[in-house]
Design a binder for these strands. Structure first.
Length: 754
DNA sequence: GGCTCTAAAGTTTTT
DNA sequence: CTTTAGAGCC
């Protein structure tokens, strides 16, 4: 392999392998390049085997992309065997393998955030605490913060000193935390934080297990080290303690996840912790113009306690950061849209070269409207994930329950849907017995008589019918792959029937999403068989999806569209033209963060990340008035605008003159409809969703009663009614084989048959 | 036990 | 303005 395409610092970082090293990688300095080259170098030159190298990232996407790049250097085969992935995906594997040490079944379930919240809600209720004070999200974030710091329930008081004032209003968090852990254990479940906590416990309590992995992973690399929390820090420390071959890469200036437990001191103190650690600084920015790099530098210079570095660019000088003032949020959005229209018209820039970034998702609305008005195609990243959707969670709950019948949250979800005459009262009784007898909900429900469940005969019968249908599937599950089981579940559970029978027009999109999920399972099964040659189990599939987010789904359809997203979501990406909107006090910086220096510094890093996404041009805008939470708010320009050195900023006093803001132009550019898509995997939007144009097919414009039509799923039918509703044109169709259905014209993939 | 209406609340979110 | 969660009704 050759390192000739690397600069001196990059090369040095790649080739140094004598001991711990810290690579401080400024924005756009070729961080991923160094990591990929280093991993290839370790295999090709140092002679390590792929499985001896552990490379940890924060997203599946980052891991996947890096793996691909390494594959092109050293070949598919070698790249495949690297222990490369997210912290969670790598350590969940170890936990499954070593579950016997941890009082955990090997088929343990992974609870996602909503499962955790739901469990906390139950606990708060059972403990008769005020659910206004003990809001599930608030309690979970307290528990999560404790877990990130490796504070177990027993030790919660002592170490949680910093949260005493918060605790005054919620003194029982410790008790809820203890109960929560108990219930997780009973359900055979772990939450996201547990994956790291339990790994630490495993390594701390069983030195022989730790040693096994220390011996296996001869070299450990960590990406985005500035975002690690204490639990992650401890794991790395333990694994590297024997051989000290560890390389962490990151940028303290881009640490923006403190609210999730990321501890910037991990990277700030790395050299001390791993002394004598070698430090490499990648300071040449290959992404942005000099002007933008200097502007960003002058902003971040206001932060204290940074690792000293001077990021520079040898690219073109470029233009200053453009600062624009708008009267209102609407005008701001309009100006951005106008500017985008102009950019694509008068320069070589295409829509895909442009991103609009904001501090909070709520700002996307006005931008969406403006984009639509200008006929600009756009994609919004973020929003609800595919796997968070109710219909998908419902299906997955059945699969989870099959794999792990103790799974409490899955049980509650399944028994509740589709409706089968088992309600809250019955469930409470089941819970009561389950708790006193120390057995699972499923166990009680399947033997209501044996456990003297105080319910009437029909209810007992319904409970048994429910559990028996699942047991039936479970019985021949061993001979089937994940896909086959899923198909069976859909038929047996009654989900598909319930949706097909539903008069709700949303049911159709639910069905399509479920179809999509099935397709995903099939894809997974095929991929596993082909790549790993192993029969994919349902348990393996469920673990994978539990650790998946929609950001991991490479979408094929965001081809040439303007990207709208939060600054957080933009981290790691780059665009020739970047607009950052809503630069007002109380918004960016956020009002929640203006109190403390740390808060402000994090917000400042956030803007630093935003500006450094831009390659050529960066626009910052603020609005004097903004419609927020139903009220018009008047804000001041963000302090951060003043903090950027004047030499790198160009102010535009009013948007009107400098941006050709005029109504005439507005109508000139507007086009009837444009295709915009949410960044979700082939997701079908619910009709209730506002984005009326969330689709990639061309919907029928006009349909008349008596028209013969063809539907993808329902087959041939005749239109019997056409009406206008709030959500669009609605048609009633009498299908030959699927009966009568109400469809929304813009969602139904209808074709006219002559 | 399941659906509809009204009230309260409203950052960022790699897993 | 929106969305979501609980109380009330059938």
């Amino acid at each position: 392999m050759t390192t000739s395409s690397l600069n001196e610092q990059q090369k040095a970082a790649v080739m140094y392998n004598e001991g711990p090293s810290l690579v401080i990688a400024g924005a756009g300095s070729g961080k991923t390049r160094v990591l990929t080259y280093k991993i290839a170098y370790l295999m090709e030159v140092v002679g390590l085997k792929p499985y001896q190298i552990m490379a940890l990232t924060f997203t599946n996407k980052a891991a996947r992309e890096m793996k691909q790049r390494i594959a092109t250097m050293v070949g598919e085969e070698k790249a495949r065997h690297l222990a490369m992935g997210t912290f969670h995906s790598q350590f969940v594997k170890i936990l499954r393998a070593e579950s016997s040490y941890l009082d955990l079944p090997s088929n343990f379930t992974v609870y996602d955030t909503s499962d955790s919240k739901s469990l906390i809600k139950s606990i708060v209720k059972e403990m008769q605490l005020d659910d206004k004070t003990y809001k599930p999200s608030a309690v979970l974030s307290r528990i999560s913060a404790a877990k990130n710091k490796m504070i177990m329930p027993e030790a919660y008081d002592d170490a949680a000193g910093a949260s005493v004032d918060f605790m005054r209003r919620m003194p029982k968090v410790k008790a809820v935390y203890a109960a929560y852990q108990n219930r997780l254990r009973q359900a055979g479940a772990v939450d996201f934080d547990d994956m790291l906590c339990l790994t630490n416990r495993l390594f701390a309590q069983y030195p022989q297990v730790l040693e096994k992995y220390q011996n296996r992973f001869q070299y450990i690399l960590v990406d985005e080290y500035q975002d690690t929390n204490y639990a992650q820090y401890l794991i790395i420390k333990a694994l590297a303690a024997k051989h000290h071959r560890v390389c962490v890469v990151g940028d303290d200036s881009q640490s923006i996840y403190a609210f999730r437990g990321a501890d910037i001191s991990n990277i700030l103190h790395f050299q001390k912790e791993y002394a004598p650690a070698k430090l490499f600084k990648l300071e040449q920015n290959y992404r942005s113009t000099q002007m933008l790099v200097e502007a960003a530098n002058s902003l971040i210079a206001h932060n204290r306690g940074r690792i000293p570095k001077h990021v520079f660019s040898e690219n073109a000088a470029g233009e200053p950061v453009q600062v624009v003032e708008a009267y209102s949020d609407t005008e701001e959005a309009h100006m951005v849209a106008m500017r985008i229209a102009r950019l694509t018209r008068s320069t070589t820039a295409s829509y895909g070269d442009i991103a609009v970034l904001y501090r909070i998702n709520a700002l996307s609305r006005s931008l969406e409207d403006a984009m639509r008005n200008q006929g600009i195609p756009y994609v919004i990243y973020g929003g609800q994930s595919f796997y968070q959707r109710k219909e998908i969670k419902d299906v997955l709950a059945y699969l989870r329950l099959l794999v792990n019948p103790s799974d409490e949250e899955a049980f509650k979800r399944c028994v509740n849907y589709p409706a089968r005459g088992i309600g809250e009262t019955t469930i409470n009784k089941v819970k009561e017995v389950s708790s006193t007898q120390q057995v699972s909900l499923f166990e009680v429900a399947s033997n209501p008589l044996a456990y003297n469940l105080p319910v009437n005969a029909p209810t007992a019968k319904r409970l048994m019918a429910f559990t028996e249908s699942l047991q039936h599937i479970a019985a021949n599950m061993q001979q089937q792959n994940a896909y086959e089981v899923a198909v069976q579940v859909l038929n047996m559970s009654g989900i598909v029937n319930a949706l097909k029978a539903s008069a709700d027009i949303a049911a159709e999109s639910d069905l399509q999403n479920i179809d999509q999920l099935l397709g995903g399972i099939k894809e997974y099964v095929d991929k596993q068989l082909e790549e790993e040659g192993q029969e994919p189990t349902l348990a393996a599939y469920l673990t994978e999806v539990a650790l998946l987010t929609d950001a991991d789904n490479d979408s094929s359809d965001d081809a040439d569209k303007v990207t709208l997203m939060t600054v957080h979501a933009a981290k790691g990406l780059e665009f020739p033209h970047v607009f950052v909107v809503g630069l007002e006090e109380e918004l960016f910086p956020s009002c929640k963060d203006v109190e403390s220096t740390e808060g402000i510094e994090e917000e400042r890093r956030l803007l630093y990340v935003a500006i450094t996404r831009a390659k050529e041009q960066c626009f910052l805008s603020y609005a004097k008035s903004r419609f927020r939470n139903g009220k018009t708010m008047y804000g001041m320009p963000s302090r951060f605008i003043r903090e950027i050195d004047k030499r790198y900023v160009q102010h535009h006093a009013k948007g009107v003159s400098s941006f050709d803001f005029s109504r005439k132009d507005d109508s000139f550019f507007s086009r009837p409809t444009f295709v915009a898509q949410r960044k979700m995997p082939g997701l079908v939007a619910k009709p209730s969703a506002v984005s009326a144009n969330t689709q990639s097919f061309t919907p029928l414009q006009h349909v008349v009663v008596g028209q013969k039509v063809l539907h993808e799923k329902f087959g041939i039918g005749v239109v019997s009614l056409v009406e206008e509703s709030a959500s669009g044109t609605r048609v009633k169709v009498q299908f030959e084989h699927s009966g009568e259905r109400l469809l929304l014209l813009k969602f139904a993939k209808l074709k006219i048959i002559d």
